[in-house]
């Protein structure tokens, strides 16, 4: 229930109505949304039990390594209800054709694959917020100084997931494990997203806010 309360309000992409609906507008909208989402993710992380007990340097290392996993997990969860469409925001849904035009085919295929995995598991909101918090603490950053403290947080959240599933689905002892086994695909998907954003940045021409650039470069 703590994680449900910590869940941020939804963001809107608000594509610029004065710009023609082109690949350029799609990419600009996407990068602007990602930047605002980052601010929200950083604020959200502070509400995850124990996160603020990490040193400031370790909070930074953790977020720098997992922010895109947290972001992608949110997008995949929002896309559960739509096959072959990726719901970056309620007012910013990209189908296969729009993705192709914007050069986002690979990213959208990857997020759709993750969403299919969650759909097959019928992941609900409680499980989504648990997984997102676990993904935060599942960092493998080599820059973390006190890994034991991060491991403790991870264990705490893992235990909470086990208890949740034990209460709600005592007939399905594999449920928690099945959810955790989606984390490798989440990491792979975030890797695809990083490649996509990095090549948008390298090609240039799409405005990117400072925080977004800072995190991409980290």
């Amino acid at each position: 229930s703590h994680l449900l309360v910590a869940e941020p309000e939804k963001l809107f992409a608000m594509p610029d109505p004065l710009q023609p609906d082109t690949a350029q507008r799609t990419l600009t909208t996407l990068c602007d949304l990602a930047d605002r989402e980052l601010v929200v993710i950083i604020g959200w992380a502070k509400h995850i039990p124990g996160f603020l007990s990490l040193s400031l340097a370790d909070q930074m290392s953790v977020l720098q390594s997992v922010w895109l996993e947290v972001l992608v997990l949110g997008v995949a969860y929002r896309s559960l209800g739509c096959e072959d469409e990726v719901v970056f925001a309620e007012d910013f849904v990209l189908d296969e054709e729009m993705s192709r035009v914007a050069g986002l085919t690979e990213l959208n295929a990857a997020i759709s694959q993750l969403a299919r995995r969650f759909r097959a598991l019928n992941v609900d909101r409680e499980e989504f917020v648990m997984l997102k918090a676990i993904a935060l603490t599942n960092s493998d950053s080599v820059y973390i100084e006190d890994m034991e403290a991060v491991q403790k947080l991870r264990d705490l959240l893992h235990q909470a997931l086990l208890e949740l599933e034990c209460q709600r689905r005592p007939d399905d002892p594999q449920r928690a494990g099945r959810l955790l086994l989606t984390l490798p695909l989440l990491r792979q998907t975030a890797g695809r997203a990083l490649n996509t954003f990095y090549s948008i940045k390298t090609r240039g021409g799409v405005p990117m806010h400072k925080l977004f650039l800072e995190m991409l470069e980290a």
Binding site: I42, L56, Q64, L211, E214
Partner: peptide, 15 residues
């Protein structure tokens, strides 16, 4: 940390 100024600031500040 100098390179990651905004993240540093957002984590240090209140919500």
């Amino acid at each position: 940390q100098e390179k990651h100024k905004i993240l540093h600031k957002l984590l240090q500040n209140g919500n």
